[in-house]
Nucleic acid binder design. Structure first.
Length: 316
DNA sequence: CGCGTTTGACCTGCGC
DNA sequence: GCGCAGGTCAAACGCG
């Protein structure tokens, strides 16, 4: 079984905080990666993780380049800022359906094909232009996971179709683009390896599934739903271990999942049930700090409380 | 044959 | 306007 571990971090609450504690022990191999909800991040907050020195959390944490955190390139910052500030509730557009069905016109002769192709491209360009002029390109909320895994494409309970791969600047690892294969589901995800730590896979989900998981049965572990792009199946994948009769590693794995779920809960995903999390605790030095906390964040009596620095709790 | 991957071309947005 | 980098398309290909 491959090793997949994760940690969730809410991003938006850290805006403006300059008191990010660095007590997180970076010398060990704290087996968490991270979750970032790009969709909620204000442009003005984008620098926060940089400010926080997120990489101190763990050697495993290497924020995706497009998340701007680990990048020093100003352009990346602005790009993500733009992405994050453009989060809108977009109706499930189906820009892909045309392209999928457009490949089956073999009955026509070459001339006709060429003509139609040109026509099609013209139409497409016009449509894109119209789109562009009418409204800025809209993006679904994004959710990024950093997962320590040997395989790039993590099983998350949904079926994905790869539609592209690009070399990433300043990274020897390409970025792969996937789209949910379900009809009318426009969820996408990007998968890339961390430049700093090749063992870490950065998976960025975009959009919300409009259908249940198609591969794996729903997780029975915590009875929790998961955030956009994350299926119940992913819960089983990321930590499909049931409580009780667990090895140390399994328990650790389970704890990580609980942490994830609780953090997701704190992120404002209403479907997270954190009732199972209260018995889990982490050593003080392992606290993950989230500068500036919401009430919801702090009111969580589960793991999140454990990873919130004490001074922040006082602040509330 | 259906489905998924590969890959080069193309589009888009941004900085200079 | 140009160049660059990210993102997407779609034909070709591979596999079961």
């Amino acid at each position: 079984m491959e090793k997949k571990e994760m940690l969730a971090v809410k991003t938006e609450d850290a805006v403006g905080s300059s008191s990010f504690p660095t007590s997180f022990n970076s010398s060990n191999s704290y087996p968490f990666s991270s979750v970032f909800d790009f969709g909620e991040v204000e442009k003005s907050s984008l620098g926060f993780m940089e400010l926080l020195g997120m990489q101190e959390f763990s050697p495993l944490i290497d924020l995706p380049r497009d998340s701007t955190v680990a990048s020093s390139a100003p352009k990346d910052l602005s790009e993500t800022a733009k992405e994050c500030s453009e989060v809108l509730n977009q109706p499930p557009a189906t820009p892909n359906s045309s392209s999928i069905s457009s490949a089956s016109s073999e009955a026509l002769n070459d001339d006709q094909n060429k003509g139609e192709e040109e026509e099609h491209q013209k139409t497409k360009k016009l449509q894109l232009k119209a789109k562009k002029t009418n409204q800025k390109r809209q993006r679904e909320p994004r959710f990024a996971f950093m997962t320590k895994s040997e395989v790039d494409h993590l099983e998350d309970g949904y079926r994905w179709r790869k539609y592209g791969q690009k070399a990433v600047k300043n990274s020897p690892f390409p970025r792969s683009y996937y789209r949910c294969t379900s009809v009318s589901c426009n969820v996408k995800k990007r998968v890339e390896r961390s430049f700093n730590d090749p063992s870490v896979v950065v998976t960025t989900y975009e959009g919300q599934h409009t259908h249940p998981s198609s591969v794996m049965p729903r997780s029975t572990l915590v009875g929790a739903s998961l955030p956009p792009g994350i299926s119940a199946g992913s819960a089983t994948t990321f930590g499909s271990l049931l409580p009780g009769n667990l090895s140390q590693y399994q328990q650790q794995h389970h704890q990580q999942q609980q942490l994830l779920l609780n953090t997701l809960s704190s992120l404002g995903f209403p479907y997270i049930n954190d009732s199972t999390s209260k018995n889990i605790a982490f050593p003080q030095e392992r606290r993950l700090c989230n500068a500036g906390s919401t009430a919801a964040f702090l009111s969580d009596n589960g793991l999140l409380q454990d990873i919130v620095p004490s001074h922040m709790l006082k602040e509330e």
